[in-house]
Design a protein around this nucleic acid. Structure first.
Length: 427
RNA sequence: GGAGAGGUGGCCGAGCGGCUGAAGGCACUCGCCUGCUAAGCGAGUAGGGGGAUUAAACCCUCUCGUGGGUUCGAAUCCCACCCUCUCCGCCA
């Protein structure tokens, strides 16, 4: 949520910024409702003031034993209370409307974010390693998975329908190995605290991160409850500190979590229908930070580097792009995508998305911190990034490290996690 | 799922329907004191919203798990829900 006061004082600026995202919002309507809200509040509070003074007087009179006067006063106060009650329902309506307006406004992009409409206007800021040149006819991850007997998409469909995977043998093991490897690196070398959160969360948590109310269609709702399956660990982990006031000395807080992620992928039909690129369920290791506003952009850089480090250890070529305004997620102020080289597609594909949300989520989830020496609590800045998406890492390994004989070489850092196996060979 | 206990400020904890936005403690901040540290002494420290102001000081209002109700007036009484703890049952 953006700062309501900032919105009113910088209406034109906000208008410009949201339109750069490709979002059109009726700010006139929002302003109108906000004015109406303030008007009603003023009226209610005036009446409440009268009532409070009157009530106090009633108390005094009664103590003096002057019941006659007290009762006279009470009659008048009764009317005031009635009026307050009426106005209160109106107030509740208007406040809800106003709140819902605010919840549907996306975050303001940081000034360093390139303005653009689609991914062609993302800007590459770094690339690492060189895409491999194959001197044999290489396969895509689906063929490799099938020939190594580690990936069975047909049977997965039998179990749950399309967009699910059944990993087998070394396939299942490499997925698990990657989870452990990534968590170990982030905890022991990057200073993150490991957490294992709930894989579902209720509505409030999803509002906190910005997934609700706007993006319900992307989520699996658990029938007959107000819970949803998480689309990313960002949701439960960011909400660890919902409604809390942290102290400045506790910051930054850094968490790493493995969770499966569940996404409807509605509207993406026709995209990535083959293989495991885009699934209803996939594993991911997620990094989440709570930091002070002063250094959130530095923290975004290190967060991105922390994620990228995994790819460097695995020796998978990647690049980093800054998402342009039109490509960024609803809650983000600035996002770097890490993209790995996928030979079968002859291009880079997203494997991690690292964002600074500034105080957008913190305001929604009411996550604040108190400065050491002074006064008012302020909102923290939240950040998160995949560190990394496991399924897509599997794709990258299978395709980038395949050999002419059909086997796949296990990255060196992963060997110990694979029980010493150095390659996966056809059965 | 059944029975009981309980949810109060950054934390712990007291609280008769009106003088309680809330005792007391802890923590923190500032000052004093001490050669330093510890201790001691004194003062201060909740949040949201609405208004005034160049800004702060200031004024009003709401907030004691959440939402309703009773009442002139609710932390306090009533109802519903949520959560936590203890015991029982069931279960990975």
């Amino acid at each position: 949520m953006i700062d309501p006061r900032f919105l009113q004082e910088n209406l034109e600026f906000v208008k410009k910024k949201t339109s750069e995202r490709g979002v059109e919002i009726d700010f006139e309507d929002i302003t109108r409702i906000n004015e109406e809200r303030k008007r009603i509040i003023r009226m209610v509070e005036k009446l409440e003031h009268q009532r409070n003074i009157g009530s106090k007087k009633v108390g005094e009179l009664k103590r003096q034993g002057n019941d006659e006067e007290a009762e006279k006063l009470q009659a008048g106060l009764r009317d005031i209370s009635e009026k307050i009650k009426e106005l209160d329902t109106k107030r509740a309506q208007v406040e809800e409307e106003s709140k819902s307006n605010l919840l549907n406004i996306p975050n303001i992009p940081d000034e360093t974010v390139p303005v653009g409409q689609d991914d062609s206007e993302n800007v590459e800021v770094k690339s690492w390693g060189n895409p491999r040149k194959f001197n044999f006819k290489f396969k895509d991850h689906i063929e490799i998975g099938k020939s190594l007997d580690i990936l069975d998409l047909e049977r997965a469909a039998k179990i749950a329908g399309s967009r699910f995977a059944l990993y087998k043998g070394q396939g299942a093991r490499i997925d698990r190995a990657l989870i452990n490897f990534m968590i170990d690196v982030h905890t022991t070398e990057h200073g993150y605290t490991e957490v294992l959160p709930p894989f579902m969360a209720h509505r409030e948590s999803f509002i906190g991160t910005g997934n609700l109310p706007k993006f319900e269609h992307e989520l699996f709702r658990v029938a007959e409850t107000d819970m949803y399956l998480i689309p990313t660990a960002e949701v439960p982990v960011t909400n660890i500190h919902r409604e809390e006031t942290l102290s400045e000395g506790d910051l930054p807080k850094k968490y790493v979590a493995y969770t499966p992620c569940f996404r409807k992928e509605a509207g993406s039909y026709g995209k990535d229908v083959h293989g495991i690129m885009r699934q209803h369920q996939f594993n991911k290791v997620e990094l989440v930070k709570f930091v002070t506003p002063e250094n959130s952009y530095d923290e975004l850089e290190t967060l991105t580097n922390d994620a990228a480090r995994i790819l460097e250890l695995l020796k998978i070529p990647y690049r980093v792009v800054v998402l342009c305004t039109g490509e960024m997620g609803f809650s983000s102020a600035k996002t770097y995508d890490l993209e790995v080289w996928v030979p079968s597609e002859n291009r880079y594909r997203e494997i991690s998305s690292c964002s600074n949300f500034e105080d957008f989520q913190a305001r929604r989830a009411n996550i604040r911190y108190r400065k050491k020496n002074s006064g008012k609590p302020k909102y923290v800045h939240t950040l998160n990034g995949s560190g990394l998406a496991i399924g897509r890492t599997v794709i990258a390994i299978l395709e980038n490290f395949q050999s002419p004989d059909g086997s796949v070489t296990i990255p060196e850092v992963l060997v110990s996690y694979m029980g010493g196996e150095e390659r996966i060979s056809p059965p």
